[in-house]
C-alpha cells in the first residue's frame, strides 16, 4: 500500500470521489493504474524524500489578498524557460562564423528549416517579453513593498537577474549577424568603453582584442548560451528558495487582522 499522503486538493463536493458501494468490484483497472503510479512515486520518495521538499514548496500558506500581480514572477520564469528551450534548438542550426556563416545559418533557419522561422521568432520576440516581464515583476515588488525586511536579499538577487537578462539581450543581439546586429554591437561595446579606467579593458575583453575580429562572435555566443544561462538558472533557484522560505507579502492595502484571542480580550 502506498504510504504517501498528499493533502486533499480543494475539490468541490459533487466532484469528490464517492466511497465504493457494497457489491461493486473491488478494484477497477483505473484504480490499479493509479495504484501503480503511486507505487512508483513511493519508490522514488522512499529513496530521496523528495515529497517533503515538494510539499514545502507547493503547499505554502499565502496571505489573504494574493492576486494576479503575484503571477508576474512565474511568468518571467516561464519566459526564461521558453528562451532556454527555443535557444537550445536554435543552437542546433546556428553557426557562430563571422565570415558570413552566421548570417547564412540564420537565413537557413528562417527560410528552409521546418518551423525555423517560428522558433526563431519565439526566441526573438520572447526576449522582449522576458525583459518587459522582469520590469513588471520588479515594479510589483517595489510598489507592494515586498523588498523590505526580511526579503532584501531576494531583491538583490533579483537585481542580479535583471542585469544578467540585460547581458543576455546585449550578447544575443549580435548573433543574427546582419548590419543591425553588427553596428548595434559596435555601439554597445564602445558604450562599455566609455567607463573611466576599466572601460578600455572591458571593451577589449568583449571584443577579444582591439578590433572586432574573428573570435568576437564566438565570444558573444559562448557568453550568451553557456555562461549567463547557467548563472541565471542558479540565481532563479536561489530566488525561488527564498520566496518559499520567507513566504509572500500581503498587498499593502490590506490591514493586519488582530488574532482571534486578542479580539476577544478587547471585547
Amino acid at each position: 500500500m502506498p504510504k504517501l499522503k498528499v493533502p486533499a486538493p480543494p475539490i468541490p463536493e459533487p466532484l469528490k470521489p464517492r466511497p465504493r458501494r457494497p457489491g461493486a468490484p473491488k478494484q477497477k483497472p483505473l484504480d490499479a493504474a493509479a495504484d501503480a503510479g503511486a507505487h512508483v512515486v513511493d519508490w522514488v520518495d522512499e529513496r530521496t524524500s523528495l515529497s517533503g521538499g515538494l510539499r514545502w514548496m507547493m503547499f505554502r500558506k499565502v496571505p489573504k489578498g494574493t492576486n494576479w500581480f503575484y503571477t508576474l514572477g512565474s511568468a518571467t520564469m516561464f519566459a526564461f524557460l521558453s528562451q532556454a528551450v527555443t535557444g537550445v534548438f536554435l543552437a542546433m542550426y546556428y553557426r557562430p562564423d563571422a565570415a558570413g556563416g552566421a548570417y547564412e545559418s540564420v537565413r537557413h533557419i528562417n527560410d528552409d528549416v521546418f518551423l525555423g522561422e517560428f522558433v526563431h521568432g519565439m526566441h526573438k520576440w520572447g526576449s522582449s517579453v522576458m525583459v518587459i516581464l522582469v520590469f513588471l515583476h520588479m515594479a510589483r515588488t517595489f510598489f507592494f513593498g515586498a523588498y523590505k525586511y526580511p526579503r532584501e536579499l531576494n531583491w538583490v538577487i533579483g537585481v542580479a537577474l535583471l542585469i544578467l537578462t540585460m547581458a543576455m539581450s546585449f550578447t544575443g543581439y549580435l548573433l543574427p549577424f546582419d548590419q543591425r546586429s553588427y553596428w548595434a554591437t559596435i555601439v554597445g561595446v564602445n558604450i562599455n568603453g566609455t567607463g573611466p579606467l576599466v572601460g578600455p579593458y572591458l571593451s577589449d575583453f568583449l571584443r577579444g582584442g582591439a578590433e572586432f575580429g574573428a573570435t568576437t562572435l564566438s565570444r558573444f555566443y559562448a557568453i550568451h548560451m553557456m555562461l549567463i544561462p547557467g548563472a541565471i538558472g542558479a540565481l532563479i533557484g536561489a530566488h525561488l528558495y527564498l520566496v518559499a522560505k520567507l513566504g509572500t507579502t500581503a498587498p499593502p492595502w490590506l490591514k493586519a487582522e488582530t488574532a482571534e484571542e486578542l479580539r476577544e480580550e478587547r471585547a
Binding site: G193, G199, D204
Partner: peptide, 20 residues
C-alpha cells in the same frame, strides 16, 4: 576606442591598451 575623450584628463581616464 570611440567615446573616450583625449583632452585634459581624458588620456589618463582612458589609458592606452596593450592590445593596440
Amino acid at each position: 576606442d570611440p567615446g573616450e575623450p583625449l583632452d585634459g584628463v581624458g588620456q589618463y581616464l582612458y589609458p592606452s591598451r596593450p592590445s593596440i
